[in-house]
């Protein structure tokens, strides 16, 4: 199987492209996911991902063909609408944020399923290929899709690099950021928009249900290796990239397996590894620290 993967990677240009784009996607979601995690917005990503489904279906119903850029525009629109509605529900009612997220997530997804089932009825079978958006199917991506996704992911990484310092301050201490003269509102809006875009470009490869995992898991795993945001972002990007590559490769060689779950399971493997081995509050390090302090206590009491 490993042999097959190498062959595919070395000799099939299509595979190379798909792998490259899932790699870039992994980096972008690792980077944006790190900020989202620290901003305590991880699960907003989940809501946005689920909410993207009706957007995709509506765009498809409007234009009548599967044109990725248009579909993604629709997804971005409903994704942003979902974040806005969550905000609105929490500010205008006594419903708390967690319930608001769940509510919006499931209702938008349900609406998406209604539209999707209508589309498949019309198309007679699964010709539309929209069901790939649910669990992700990297192998089904065309060359144009790959260009779109890779371009967007590259752009996101660049913007995150340029705004690193500002976002860091904004997330760590928004009041102080305001006092320092940063346009806090603008930076917030920009961040949420870019987070939505990250989720949206990821759904074709990872799927709407599992996309949130690609935001959360690499970021959390990276936290076990470093205490600096700069490194955290880089490591999260690397873990995301690695998950993207492995998931896409396994999925392309054994057709039929959806890409999303494979990417998520790879990322989860990285998490378990980091959770145990990681030098910053990893399990082994914690046990050793505990051991050392217990020893010290013993010596002192003697």
């Amino acid at each position: 199987m490993i042999q097959d993967m190498w062959n595919a990677l070395l000799h099939q240009p299509n595979t190379q492209w798909v792998v490259l784009s899932t790699m870039l996607l992994g980096i972008a979601s690792g980077v944006l996911g790190s900020f989202a995690l620290l901003k305590k917005q991880s699960l907003i990503g989940d809501a946005v991902a689920h909410a993207a489904l009706p957007g995709i279906c509506i765009s498809y119903l409007l234009i009548g063909e599967k044109q990725l850029l248009v579909l993604l525009l629709g997804a971005t629109a409903t994704g942003l609408l979902a974040t806005y509605l969550i905000q609105l529900i929490t500010t205008t009612t006594r419903i708390k944020k967690d319930a608001a997220i769940c509510l919006i997530l499931s209702v938008f997804f349900g609406t998406g399923i209604v539209l999707l089932s209508r589309i498949t009825q019309q198309a007679g079978g699964n010709k539309s290929g929209l069901d790939h958006f649910i669990f992700g199917q990297a192998a089904a991506m065309t060359r144009d899709d790959v260009y779109t996704m890779a371009g967007a992911a590259g752009g996101l990484i660049l913007i995150a690099f340029l705004l690193f310092k500002e976002w860091k301050l904004l997330i760590f201490d928004p009041d102080f950021a305001k006092n320092s003269g940063l346009p806090v509102g603008l930076l917030e809006t920009l961040f949420s928009t870019l987070l939505v875009i990250t989720v949206v470009i990821g759904i074709q490869a990872v799927g709407v249900i599992l996309m949130a995992a690609l935001l959360i898991i690499p970021a959390i795993s990276a936290r076990y290796w470093t205490d600096r945001l700069g490194w955290m972002v880089i490591i999260a990007g690397a873990i995301g990239a690695c998950s993207g590559i492995v998931g896409a490769l396994i999925s392309t060689i054994s057709t039929g397996l959806a890409t999303g779950p494979l990417i998520v399971v790879t990322a989860a493997g990285c998490f378990i590894f980091s959770f145990i081995i990681g030098p910053k509050r990893g399990l082994i390090q914690k046990l050793m620290a505990h051991h050392v302090s217990a020893e010290r206590l013993k010596e002192e009491s003697l």
């Binding site: 305590k40 699960l43 989940d46 967690d98 399971v265």
Partner: peptide
């Protein structure tokens, strides 16, 4: 309890379990 934010711990656990479930079904 080990220090991961609550929403993130939720995010890790269920996506992983769900992903494994989907893979097992397809296999």
């Amino acid at each position: 309890n080990s220090g991961v934010q609550e929403d993130a711990s939720i995010g890790i656990v269920f996506t992983t379990f769900f992903a494994i479930g989907v893979i097992l079904i397809s296999l």
